[in-house]
Computed example of a mutant assay.
Amino acid sequence: MEISLSTDIDSISWEELARLFELAPLGKKRDPKKVEIAFRNSLLRVFAFHGETLVGAGRALSDGVWRAAIYDVAVLPKYQGKGIGSMIIRHLVDSAKVDVIMLYAVPGKSKFYERFGFRKMATAMAITPNEDEARKRGLIE
Results as ranks from 00 to 15, higher is better:
residue 63 D to P: 06
residue 74 A to Y: 03
residue 90 R to K: 14
residue 89 I to S: 00
residue 78 K to I: 14
residue 44 L to Y: 13
residue 86 S to H: 09
residue 39 F to N: 06
residue 90 R to G: 00
residue 52 E to S: 15
residue 87 M to S: 09
residue 52 E to H: 14
residue 83 G to K: 10
residue 53 T to K: 15
residue 64 G to R: 08
residue 64 G to P: 02
residue 84 I to E: 02
residue 43 L to A: 12
residue 90 R to W: 00
residue 45 R to A: 10
residue 70 I to V: 13
residue 92 L to V: 06
residue 55 V to H: 11
residue 51 G to N: 14
residue 73 V to I: 08
residue 79 Y to F: 14
residue 91 H to I: 02
residue 51 G to E: 05
residue 68 A to V: 08
residue 50 H to S: 13
residue 58 G to Q: 11
residue 62 S to C: 10
residue 48 A to M: 05
residue 74 A to L: 06
residue 66 W to P: 07
residue 69 A to M: 14
residue 75 V to Q: 07
residue 36 E to N: 14
residue 59 R to I: 03
residue 46 V to H: 03
residue 80 Q to A: 05
residue 76 L to V: 10
residue 85 G to F: 11
residue 57 A to Q: 04
residue 88 I to P: 01
residue 51 G to Q: 11
residue 52 E to M: 15
residue 38 A to M: 08
residue 85 G to P: 05
residue 62 S to I: 05
residue 40 R to V: 14
residue 45 R to F: 11
residue 65 V to S: 15
residue 77 P to R: 05
residue 81 G to R: 11
residue 81 G to F: 14
residue 74 A to I: 07
residue 43 L to N: 13
residue 49 F to V: 07
residue 67 R to A: 11
residue 51 G to W: 11
residue 43 L to K: 10
residue 91 H to S: 10
residue 55 V to P: 07
residue 59 R to K: 12
residue 83 G to Y: 07
residue 60 A to S: 06
residue 85 G to Q: 04
residue 74 A to D: 04
residue 77 P to D: 12
residue 79 Y to K: 05
residue 36 E to D: 15
residue 80 Q to F: 07
residue 82 K to L: 14
residue 62 S to N: 01
residue 56 G to R: 11
residue 73 V to A: 01
residue 47 F to C: 03
residue 72 D to W: 00
residue 37 I to V: 13
residue 69 A to P: 13
residue 88 I to C: 00
residue 45 R to Y: 00
residue 54 L to T: 02
residue 55 V to N: 08
residue 55 V to L: 15
residue 56 G to F: 00
residue 69 A to Q: 14
residue 61 L to I: 15
residue 82 K to A: 12
residue 63 D to N: 06
residue 88 I to E: 03
residue 46 V to R: 03
residue 54 L to W: 12
residue 70 I to G: 06
residue 78 K to F: 15
residue 44 L to W: 05
residue 43 L to T: 10
residue 39 F to R: 04
residue 83 G to H: 08
residue 83 G to E: 09
residue 92 L to H: 02
residue 84 I to G: 05
residue 70 I to P: 04
residue 86 S to Y: 04
residue 88 I to M: 03
residue 57 A to M: 01
residue 54 L to Y: 11
residue 85 G to H: 04
residue 90 R to D: 02
residue 69 A to G: 15
residue 79 Y to G: 10
